[in-house]
Design a protein around this nucleic acid. Structure first.
Lengths: 208, 208
DNA sequence: GTCTATAGGCAGATAGAC
DNA sequence: GTCTATCTGCCTATAGAC
């Protein structure tokens, strides 16, 4: 199983680091709800949609996740944990910094291949309609991504394997924005090549 | 009234080129609905929300726009027309190409200042849930933006006032993606400076 | 063009049996 | 943990009077 398989929730092995101790049913619920949010948005799926796919009643769904907001919070937490775990694997498994960035981009490609938007990118669009807890969880996801990227960028520049103007954090924010935007647009065109072109352009511009 | 005031629907003068012949009520409806979509999303506002603000009944609203999808199509058409008119004003009023790009970025800043997302950026997130007519209208909006940018980029590079690698259209797509993504993220941080930083970085990278 | 009234369905959520 | 049944409210949309 590749790194990117860990991110969009397909056939993900349970590990202590990335998943809380949940029942199989709860995890099935999260899997289905995650996909529905990434494809349709948090405001465009219902408990009934999830219940139907998991073959339980909406009442049972409320047993596992009492409110839709709590389900949403659990979704973000699981997604963020999985994403951070993937970043950890990149740290350990990939040597040079340009390749780390390429591996980071591949995480996005993996999401897009499943015809999904980044969970937190989708929730960012719906930000104004979310609970305070969900809002701050989305923001934290972006901050963690930026911090990881900034670290890679700084080290790469120090070693001469990456080149960019300005601060690493500023560059990191530009990269996150560009990738999220490229996903957003590419998905409405139904054309993953649009994402690949933008991402390739981005990686090229960082070459020394 | 500045160029950017024309884009987000505040105090916009009626002109034959940019607006269809609609009653005041229909335009009020569009103004309110547009703001609600840009702030909350198409799936997170109702006819009741609009009716309340316009001080009419939902039944009257259905007289002007029989279905929500038709309202959505009218929203995109008006927004796209206004945006294209603003691009036309940039073409006529701004001389050098770097400044044209800066003026283009200012259109986005104007939207963000009103605490809104780009209408079509928001609809891109919700793409999977939209009618076919709305979907293709969103795509056309992006294509027109890219075509305009590609033209500016090509001319600027030919004159030596802009510098970039690859084709103008590829660069244009990267710019649209970066700006839409920067809006998306900046808005969830509630921090317009995040957008300004990314946009400034982008404009700087195009300097010869 | 606007209204009241209402249809018909779906939303999130709860009670209580098993 | 799961179910059926139900509540309350909101949703888009329509009928028909004015």
């Amino acid at each position: 199983m590749g790194i990117s398989d860990r991110v969009y929730g397909v056939a993900v092995a349970k590990t202590a680091e990335t998943q809380q101790d949940r029942t199989d049913t709860a995890n099935q619920i999260l899997d289905v709800a995650e996909r529905l949010v990434q494809v349709r948005g948090f405001n465009a799926f219902s408990y009934a949609d999830v219940a139907k796919e998991v073959h339980i009643s909406t009442a049972s769904l409320h047993y596992h996740f009492p409110s839709k907001s709590e389900l949403g919070e659990a979704l973000i937490a699981r997604y963020a944990n999985r994403f951070m775990a993937a970043l950890g694997e990149i740290d350990e498994g990939v040597a040079d910094h340009p390749r780390k960035l390429a591996a980071y981009v591949e995480l996005y490609v993996g999401v897009l291949r499943n015809e999904r938007m980044c969970l937190c990118g989708m929730l960012a669009a719906e930000h104004e309609t979310l609970s305070a807890a969900m809002q701050s969880a989305v923001v934290k996801f972006f901050e963690k991504n930026e911090a990881w990227l900034a670290e890679v960028l700084q080290q790469g520049r120090d070693q001469g394997s990456l080149r960019f103007a300005g601060s690493p954090l500023e560059e990191a924010r530009s990269i996150v924005s560009a990738l999220e935007g490229a996903m957003l647009v590419a998905r409405s065109f139904g054309d993953i090549n649009r994402f690949q072109a933008v991402a390739g352009h981005l990686l090229t511009s960082l070459r020394p």
